[in-house]
Amino acid sequence: MRAHPPLVVGVDGSEASLRALDWAADEAALRGLPLRVVYASLWERYEGAALARDLGGPSGHVAAEDIVRVAGDRARRRRPDLPVTTAVVPEEPEYVLVRESRDASVVVVGTRGRSGLADALLGSVSLTVATRAHCPVVVIRGNHDNRATGGGHARIVVGVSDAPTTAVRVACEEARRREVPLEAVRTWRRPAHETVDHPLLAGSPERLHEERAAEELETALADAPPEVVLHRRTAEGHARQVLLAASHEADLLVIGRRRTGQFGPRLGRVAHTVLHHSACPVMVVPDEENTEGRHAAAGRPHRT
């Protein structure tokens, strides 16, 4: 593995991918990492209007080499001191970006690139990469200003699951790097079959569940760096709804991804919901058990 693994961003010439490129350039500069710009497609040419202005001509057919050249120049203009390399790979983008993730620090992708519904839907490329990548994946979506730092809310939110995960550690690192507070959210719900006349729950049945959630939150944050300003919050309700609400006041939402079942990594309902509807960029962090095979041969992901 390279001493300084690059930050990889996938581009396809769309406005969504150019927003992802801007965010990735800022993030790479913040981390002191080189930026690798990758265009991957089985098609040799891209038909669209997003690059017309930068290419200095009318919209229409744009060659893959033009896409990465313009993207690379755009990143260099945004961050003049940033080392930038580009690559054109004539393969399915899902396969290429998952393979790139084995030797990357982070992979950044946009939402559905070739559709007018880009801000409402998540494309198969973004979803597949977020599900199968071997490093953290940031999906750029929401009404943000294309900046990885200095956003309007100056805080990061992490969803804390039933047990401490790698996502909490990564969220702490992101908050420390940006010098912003981290809000750690643990949701809880009282099971529907519980009633107030249960002898162990008499008086305040919800308090036991809330206290348990607070204890789990403390456990998850036990190893947080002392320099990170932590805001702890427990909330009753569905995790996906609570995190979506929190995304409106965050610059980055961090969630974990676990390996479940015999078919490898899967995204749960919470991850699916926030990836489709978050108001800010979402970072999906695989648990460490999912990163152990990073150097093994990458399997070809299935389209979704």
Results as ranks from 00 to 15, higher is better:
Asn143Gly: 08
Val89Asn: 00
Val138Tyr: 10
Arg74Asn: 09
Gly48Gln: 10
Pro136Glu: 13
Gly56Ala: 04
Val88Asn: 04
Pro90Glu: 06
Arg45Gln: 14
Val138Asn: 07
Arg147Glu: 13
Glu91Pro: 10
Val37Met: 10
Leu97Ala: 06
Val89Tyr: 01
Arg74Tyr: 09
Arg74Phe: 00
Ala64Ile: 14
Arg69Lys: 14
Ala118Pro: 11
Ala87Gln: 11
Ala16Leu: 06
Val129Arg: 10
Leu30Ile: 12
Ala24Arg: 12
Arg132Gly: 08
Ser115Thr: 12
His134Gly: 15
Ser101Lys: 11
Leu30Ser: 02
Trp43Pro: 01
Thr131Ala: 15
Val125Glu: 05
Asp66Lys: 13
Arg147Thr: 03
Glu27Met: 05
Ala148Glu: 12
Glu100Gln: 15
Gly48Pro: 13
Ser14Val: 03
Val84Met: 07
Val68Met: 14
Gly110Phe: 01
Val129Thr: 14
Glu91Cys: 11
Gly113Tyr: 01
Ala87Trp: 07
Leu35Glu: 06
Arg45Ala: 10
Trp23Lys: 02
Gly56Asp: 09
Ser105Asp: 15
Ala75Asp: 02
Leu21Thr: 04
Leu21Ser: 05
Arg112Cys: 07
Pro93Ser: 03
Gly142Cys: 07
Leu30Met: 12
Ser101Glu: 12
Ala75Ile: 04
Gly56Ile: 01
Val107Asp: 05
Val89Glu: 01
Leu18Phe: 12
Ala49Trp: 11
Arg147Tyr: 09
Arg102Cys: 13
Asp119Gly: 15
Val108Gln: 00
Gly60Thr: 06
Thr111Leu: 01
Ala50Asp: 03
Ala104Trp: 08
Cys135Ala: 14
Leu117Thr: 00
Gly142Thr: 01
Tyr95Pro: 07
Asp12Ala: 14
His144Trp: 01
